[in-house]
Amino acid sequence: MNFRYGPWARTFHWTIAILAFFMLALGAYMTKGIAPDDPIRGQLYSLHKATGALILFLVLIRLLVRFNNDPPMLDDQPALIRIGSRLNHYALYLMLIAQPLVGILFSQAANRPVSFYGLFNLPTLIDQQPKPVVENLAAAHQIGAGILVLLIALHIAGGLYHWLIKRDGVMGRMAWW
Rank of each mutant, 00 (worst) to 15 (best):
A28M: 11
Y29R: 06
M30K: 08
T31V: 14
K32C: 10
K32W: 09
K32M: 12
K32R: 12
G33T: 06
A35C: 08
P36L: 02
P36A: 08
D37Y: 10
D37L: 06
D37K: 07
D37V: 07
D38R: 06
P39L: 08
P39K: 05
I40L: 14
G42F: 12
G42N: 12
Q43M: 12
L44I: 03
L44G: 01
Y45W: 14
Y45A: 01
L47E: 04
L47M: 11
L47F: 08
A50W: 12
A50G: 15
G52A: 07
L54C: 08
I55Y: 02
L56S: 05
F57D: 09
F57H: 10
F57G: 14
L58N: 03
L63N: 05
V65W: 13
V65F: 11
V65G: 02
V65C: 08
V65M: 06
R66P: 02
N68I: 06
N69T: 15
P72S: 09
D75T: 11
D76S: 13
D76M: 11
Q77W: 13
P78D: 11
L80Q: 14
L80K: 13
R82T: 10
I83T: 14
I83D: 06
I83L: 15
R86I: 06
N88S: 10
H89L: 12
Y90L: 15
A91T: 03
L92R: 04
L92S: 03
Y93E: 00
Y93T: 01
M95G: 03
M95I: 12
I97H: 09
A98C: 08
P100N: 04
V102D: 00
G103E: 00
I104H: 01
L105S: 01
F106V: 04
F106Q: 03
Q108C: 05
A109S: 12
A110H: 06
R112C: 08
P113W: 13
S115T: 15
Y117H: 04
Y117R: 00
Y117C: 01
L119C: 09
L119F: 12
N121T: 11
N121V: 05
P123L: 03
D127I: 07
D127L: 10
D127R: 09
